[in-house]
Computed example of a mutant assay.
Amino acid sequence: MKLQFRVGLRTIKTGIAVAIALGFSWYVFGIYSGMGAVAAIVAMQPTIHRSFKIVFNRIFGTILGLVCGLAVVATLGANPLTIGLAVIVSLVFNSMIGRTDMSTFAAFAIVLMFESPTGDYAHYALTRSLLTVVGVLSAVAVNYIVFPPHYEDRLLLFVKKTTKQLMEDWRSLVKDDSKLLAVRKQVLKHEEMIIMLQEDQKYPLVASGQSEAFIQLKQLVDLEDKLLLLLESIASHRDLPMSEEQEKALGQEIDFLLSHHYDVIFSHERNQPMFTFDQEISEVKDIINGHLLDYREQLEKMK
């Protein structure tokens, strides 16, 4: 088995954020606690938007959990049953206020609070809350300032690779559902990356999701999806009776569209329209024809 050694930017940034959090813990608070480091790891998300979202969930979830834990301990004392009760109280409260996304952080904070070597749970809870804040803010700052996420170039390479596979192998793909499913998983990843790009459009250090380059990239992903939908439609109806002439006409129509699709992806700086379409539509089954038209229309948008 061949091992691949690759260190991504997010991996490096996670290490930097952890080092900052532990540095604060050691040099500012005079203790060594992994709570801030764990918070930094959780908050290092693939997009700036998701990192900021974690800030709220992590900080307020931790504070809520610690408050519930202190209230239960002050009332009933500290033992395994009261710790379990404190977790239940925090989870129920999160559900009541409609913030179940904070539940895990609240429960996590309660369990860690009782690791205090002394009975001063309030001081221990306050210190760990501050370390949590330091950890998530360290992650957000590093993620935002140090090589902020840019997915455009990588996504374009992925789209070109997948689309080229669809173009070259479409006749064999429509005969193999497992191969089509594998390609669908790739396209879903591309669509997820488009969503991540859109999420960060508010942040000036990150490439804007409103830029012309992003709009064109989104169109390419949409076009890739239309082509895959067409092939999936043909595959799901491959048992329908079709004459040899109809099969030939359909193949020619798809090849015609694919040639222009290729131009859209691999050609640059055109001063004239890239292509025109005939009005004639191949005589194929309606459901396949619908996806064929969708694919056509998406290509038209790329003129």
Score class of each variant (00 low, 15 high):
62 T>C: 07
206 V>F: 00
204 P>T: 04
163 T>M: 12
205 L>D: 06
278 D>R: 14
297 E>N: 15
51 S>E: 01
195 I>W: 03
269 E>G: 11
18 V>H: 01
127 T>W: 01
252 Q>T: 09
7 V>S: 05
95 S>Y: 10
2 K>W: 04
60 F>S: 10
236 S>C: 11
219 Q>A: 11
172 S>P: 00
133 V>M: 12
289 N>P: 01
53 K>A: 10
182 A>R: 15
67 V>H: 05
147 F>W: 11
282 S>V: 15
289 N>K: 15
165 Q>C: 07
105 F>P: 03
220 L>Q: 15
176 D>Q: 09
139 A>W: 02
31 I>Q: 15
111 V>L: 07
141 A>M: 13
18 V>K: 01
51 S>C: 04
254 I>N: 04
237 H>T: 13
266 F>H: 13
254 I>T: 08
32 Y>C: 09
128 R>P: 05
89 V>A: 13
146 V>L: 13
19 A>M: 09
230 L>V: 09
61 G>V: 02
111 V>Y: 00
100 T>R: 15
74 A>Y: 11
274 M>Y: 07
252 Q>I: 10
16 I>V: 15
100 T>M: 13
118 T>M: 09
24 F>C: 10
92 V>S: 04
208 S>F: 02
34 G>P: 13
232 E>G: 08
50 R>I: 00
216 Q>V: 07
292 L>F: 06
6 R>H: 11
104 T>M: 13
201 Q>P: 08
241 P>A: 05
29 F>Q: 10
6 R>C: 01
135 G>L: 03
30 G>V: 09
182 A>V: 10
147 F>A: 14
284 V>L: 03
48 I>C: 08
197 L>Q: 10
265 I>S: 03
296 R>F: 05
38 V>P: 04
244 E>A: 13
5 F>P: 01
48 I>F: 07
79 N>G: 11
222 D>H: 14
8 G>D: 01
10 R>H: 06
135 G>K: 04
88 I>W: 02
99 R>G: 00
200 D>N: 10
54 I>N: 09
138 S>Q: 08
75 T>C: 14
237 H>Y: 11
146 V>D: 06
17 A>F: 01
302 M>Q: 14
204 P>Q: 05
27 Y>A: 12
42 V>I: 15
126 L>H: 06
269 E>Q: 15
17 A>Y: 00
247 E>N: 14
175 K>W: 00
272 Q>Y: 08
247 E>S: 12
136 V>N: 03
230 L>M: 10
22 L>W: 02
37 A>M: 04
11 T>W: 00
162 T>A: 07
195 I>F: 08
125 A>G: 05
149 P>W: 00
204 P>F: 07
253 E>L: 03
295 Y>R: 09
118 T>A: 07
186 Q>I: 02
38 V>T: 13
11 T>C: 06
136 V>T: 09
230 L>D: 05
189 K>P: 00
187 V>Q: 01
219 Q>I: 04
16 I>T: 08
189 K>V: 00
120 D>E: 13
296 R>W: 06
173 L>A: 02
131 L>C: 09
277 F>V: 06
140 V>Q: 05
34 G>Q: 11
21 A>M: 03
169 D>Y: 10
258 L>R: 10
14 T>L: 05
197 L>I: 13
93 F>A: 12
225 D>W: 11
93 F>C: 08
288 I>R: 03
226 K>P: 08
190 H>Y: 02
55 V>S: 08
102 M>W: 06
131 L>T: 05
173 L>Q: 03
25 S>P: 06
241 P>D: 07
134 V>A: 07
246 Q>P: 06
